[in-house]
C-alpha cells in the first residue's frame, strides 16, 4: 500500500518533470501556437460562451455577462410566433433542394474522368472552375441583369418565342429555383475537383480485370468508379448536412426583396434582420442557437449513420 503510493508519487513527479523538461526544451514551439490559440479563444470560444445572451435579456449598458436571465423566453416566443413555421419550412426546402442536387458534381467528375483527350479535359476543368472565383455579389448582380423583366436576356428570349415575360426576381415561386441553380452554376466545377482526385486514385487493375470480363464503360463506372469514391462522397455529404440550416444565407440576403420574402425568408436572414437591423440581440441569438443546435445534431446523427452503414465517416 505504502509502496504503491510512493510509486504513484514518483510517477507523478517524473510526469511533472517530463512536462517541465519538454516546456524548457520546446517552449518556442508553444509560443508559435499563441496567436492562433488567442484568436480561437477570443473570436470563437468567448462568443460560444456569449451565446448565453439567448437566455438573457441583453441590455447594452450591462453587457453580455451582466444582463438579467430570462430562461427560455426568447425560444418560446420564437416557436410560438406566426413566422416560425414559415422560416423553418423555407430553410428546410431550400437546403433540401440543394442537397438533392448534391450528386451533380459527382456526375461531372465521372464524366470528366472518362475524357481521354488531355487538352480538352484541361480546358473543361479550367472553364468550369472559373465561376467559383466570382463573388456572390457579382453572381447575384448577373442574375438581376439576365432575369430583368424587360431588359433581361432570358425574358427577351421568352417574349421573342411568343411567351410572356416572367418577373423572376420578384416571384416567390421562382426564388428557390433561381437561388439553387445559380449556385450549381457557380460551384459545379469546383466541387468536382475532390471527386476527380478520388477517381484518379482508383486501382487501374480493377478496370483491366473488368475489361477482360467484357464489362462496358458504363458498367465499369457503375461498379468500379462509383464504389471506389464512395468514402469521399459520404464524407462530403456529411459535411454538407452539417451546414444544412445555414443555406448560403449571404446570397439569400442579396436576392431577398419585399415581394419574394414569403419563400426567401430563412432562419439566418431573419437572425440578421431582427438582431443587427432591429437590435433584438437576445432574441436573434436564441434563433441562431436553435439553428446551430439543429446543424450539430444533424452532423452527429448522419456521421453515426454513415459509420454504421458504410464504414466511412468524419470521425
Amino acid at each position: 500500500m505504502r509502496t504503491a503510493r510512493a510509486e504513484a508519487h514518483v510517477a507523478e513527479k517524473t510526469r511533472g518533470y517530463r512536462i517541465k523538461k519538454n516546456f524548457q526544451r520546446n517552449w518556442q514551439l508553444y509560443v508559435l501556437l499563441v496567436p492562433a490559440i488567442a484568436y480561437f479563444i477570443i473570436l470563437h470560444y468567448i462568443p460560444m460562451y456569449g451565446v448565453q445572451i439567448a437566455f438573457k435579456n441583453f441590455i447594452a449598458t450591462q453587457g453580455i455577462w451582466g444582463s438579467p436571465w430570462t430562461g427560455f423566453d426568447h425560444f418560446t416566443r420564437f416557436f410560438e410566433s406566426y413566422y416560425f413555421w414559415r422560416l423553418l419550412k423555407n430553410t428546410i426546402i431550400l437546403s433540401a433542394y440543394q442537397l438533392v442536387l448534391f450528386p451533380l458534381p459527382i456526375i461531372l467528375a465521372l464524366s470528366l474522368h472518362e475524357v481521354k483527350k488531355t487538352m480538352f479535359k484541361r480546358w473543361a476543368q479550367t472553364l468550369t472552375y472559373a465561376p467559383h472565383f466570382i463573388s456572390v455579389v457579382v453572381v447575384v448582380g448577373m442574375i438581376v441583369i439576365f432575369l430583368d423583366p424587360t431588359t433581361g436576356l432570358v425574358n427577351r428570349v421568352i417574349v421573342a418565342l411568343g411567351g410572356e415575360a416572367i418577373p423572376f426576381l420578384t416571384s416567390p415561386d421562382w426564388f428557390r429555383h433561381i437561388f439553387t441553380w445559380s449556385g450549381v452554376w457557380q460551384t459545379l466545377g469546383w466541387s468536382s475537383i475532390i471527386y476527380l482526385a478520388a477517381l484518379s486514385g482508383v486501382n487501374p487493375e480493377l478496370h483491366e480485370a473488368a475489361k477482360v470480363d467484357g464489362a462496358t464503360r458504363i458498367q465499369r463506372i457503375l461498379h468500379i468508379n462509383i464504389p471506389s469514391i464512395l468514402p469521399t462522397i459520404v464524407v462530403l455529404f456529411i459535411l454538407n448536412i452539417g451546414s444544412f440550416m445555414t443555406v448560403g444565407f449571404e446570397k439569400v440576403l442579396l436576392m431577398q426583396n419585399d415581394l419574394n420574402v414569403s419563400t426567401s425568408d430563412v432562419i439566418q436572414t431573419f437572425v440578421y434582420q431582427t438582431g443587427l437591423l432591429e437590435g433584438q440581440y437576445s432574441f436573434a441569438a436564441a434563433i441562431g442557437l436553435f439553428d446551430s443546435v439543429i446543424n450539430i445534431t444533424l452532423l452527429v446523427v448522419f456521421n453515426y449513420l454513415a459509420r454504421k452503414l458504410t464504414d466511412s465517416s468524419l470521425w
Binding site: I42, L43, H44, I46, P47, M48, Y49, G50, V51, I53, I64, Q268, V271, Y272, G275, L276, Y281, A284, A285, G288, L289, D291, S292
Partner: peptide
Amino acid sequence: NGGLIPTYLI
C-alpha cells in the same frame, strides 16, 4: 460557433 450575434457583440 457562437453565431452571428455573439460574434458581433464581441
